[in-house]
Deep mutational scan, measured.
Amino acid sequence: TKEGQWDCSACLVQNEGSSTKCAACQNPRKQ
């Protein structure tokens, strides 16, 4: 995982660090 990116806890899609919700399932980003 690149720095600043995060993996969705629900569907495991990798998202940009600037995103607050998963691009695939709209699950909110977990801190």
Rank of each mutant, 00 (worst) to 15 (best):
T1L: 08
C22H: 05
K30V: 02
K21W: 03
Q26V: 03
K21T: 07
T20E: 06
K30A: 07
V13I: 09
Q5T: 11
S18G: 14
K30C: 02
Q26T: 09
A10I: 05
R29H: 11
S9I: 10
D7A: 11
N27F: 08
V13Y: 02
T20F: 06
C22D: 03
T1Y: 08
T20C: 01
S9E: 14
S18E: 05
A23H: 08
V13N: 08
A24K: 10
C8P: 01
S19L: 12
L12F: 05
Q26E: 15
P28H: 06
V13K: 13
K30Q: 14
D7P: 09
C11L: 00
N27E: 15
N27D: 15
C11N: 05
Q31V: 07
N27G: 14
N15W: 00
K2W: 00
N27P: 07
N27T: 15
E16P: 02
Q5N: 14
K21I: 08
S19Q: 14
C25F: 00
K30D: 11
C22L: 02
K21C: 04
Q14I: 12
K21N: 07
G17I: 11
C11G: 06
N15K: 09
K30L: 05
G4Q: 14
E3A: 00
Q26D: 15
R29I: 11
S19F: 07
N15Q: 11
S18D: 09
L12G: 06
A24W: 01
K21D: 08
N15C: 03
N27Y: 07
V13C: 04
S19N: 11
E3R: 02
E3I: 04
S9G: 06
S19C: 12
P28I: 09
Q5S: 13
W6K: 14
Q5R: 09
D7N: 15
P28C: 13
K21P: 04
W6S: 13
C8G: 02
W6Y: 13
C25K: 08
A24N: 15
E3N: 06
T20S: 09
D7C: 10
Q26K: 15
D7S: 08
K2C: 10
C25H: 06
Q31R: 05
Q5Y: 11
L12C: 07
K21M: 04
S9D: 12
A23Q: 09
S19P: 09
K30F: 12
Q14G: 13
Q5K: 13
P28L: 11
S9H: 11
N15E: 07
C11D: 02
S19H: 09
C22G: 02
E3D: 11
C25N: 05
C25L: 01
G17A: 12
A24Y: 02
Q5V: 01
D7I: 06
Q31A: 13
E16Y: 02
T1C: 10
S18Q: 12
S9T: 12
E3W: 00
P28G: 06
P28F: 04
E3T: 05
N15H: 07
G17H: 13
Q26F: 08
Q31P: 11
Q14V: 07
G4A: 12
S9N: 08
Q26S: 13
P28D: 15
K21A: 06
C25S: 01
Q14W: 06
C22W: 00
G4E: 15
D7M: 07
W6D: 15
S19M: 10
N15D: 08
A10T: 03
Q5P: 02
A23M: 08
T1M: 10
A10K: 00
A10C: 03
A10H: 15
K2V: 02
C8T: 05
T1D: 05
A23I: 04
E16A: 10
G17W: 07
S9M: 07
C11Q: 06
S18R: 06
K2L: 04
V13E: 09
S19R: 08
G4W: 03
A23K: 13
G4F: 13
S18L: 10
K2R: 00
C8K: 03
V13G: 13
K30P: 09
E16V: 04
A24Q: 09
Q5H: 09
E3Q: 14
W6I: 15
G17E: 14
W6E: 14
K2T: 03
S9Q: 12
W6L: 07
A24S: 11
C8H: 01
N27I: 09
P28E: 15
K2Q: 08
D7L: 03
D7K: 12
